[in-house]
Amino acid sequence: MIKIANLVKRFGDATVLDGIDLDIAQGEIIVVIGPSGTGKSTLLRCLNFLERPDAGHLVIGDLSVDVTRASRADILAARRRTAFVFQNYALFANKTALENIAEGLIVVNRWPKARAHARAREILERIGLADKADAYPASLSGGQQQRVGIGRAMAAQAEVILFDEPTSSLDPEWVEEVLGLMKQLARERQTMLVVTHEMGFARDVADRVVFMEGGRIVEQGPPSQLFNAPRDPRTRDFLRKILAGQPA
């Protein structure tokens, strides 16, 4: 259960998030769409405190925090309740696939190494990379690296996994395997907040699609409504542009 209330983020004079309100139920899959530079990634990064929001209130599971007064402990708590999947994978280059997944369990959750590695092996099995346990990121394909990135997020057992354009850096040949893994997680009712330009994924998988522009949520609803009968002209305009470039 996540409640975002009046979240504001400014970079200098620019207001990147201009009062975002969003509730996410347990097991809900939300896809955020919108033009570039509208604050979609910043929203995710604020939930994880990779960016410090300037105002707002966050509830993430049993954590409730006014972001302007968030202490170091609050920030660590928020990070432990949210897992992040990065556009450029951001795997630890000095660790194997197995170690990348186990790292948080060992260092953050203080699990014994053997237990963390056993869990990491289960996750490698689920993401279809059991045979790559001892491979370092440099020797993995982009698709495999991103699956390990998702595996690392799965290991955290967070309230929500935040996906920041997880397929945007991938060569086209690897996009399907990553989306496939995300669909598998969606079927398991993993709570997900996904920023993506993959409209097919949004249509097929999302419970709710959120359209953002200019740091605000313009419109949201189930994919059937948002894609087939958008109410706001800005949504219609964006969808017309983006769908013109994609097969219907």
């Binding site: 994880n48 432990r80 992040f84 951001a90 630890f92 790292e103 948080g104 953050v108 690392r152």
Partner: peptide
């Protein structure tokens, strides 16, 4: 980005320095 990844899973600055 690895620094951000380490922070995102809840590592402290010390852990981030030492491990990554």
């Amino acid at each position: 980005s690895q620094t951000e990844a380490a922070l995102s899973i809840g590592m402290t600055n010390g852990q981030l320095m030492r491990r990554i």
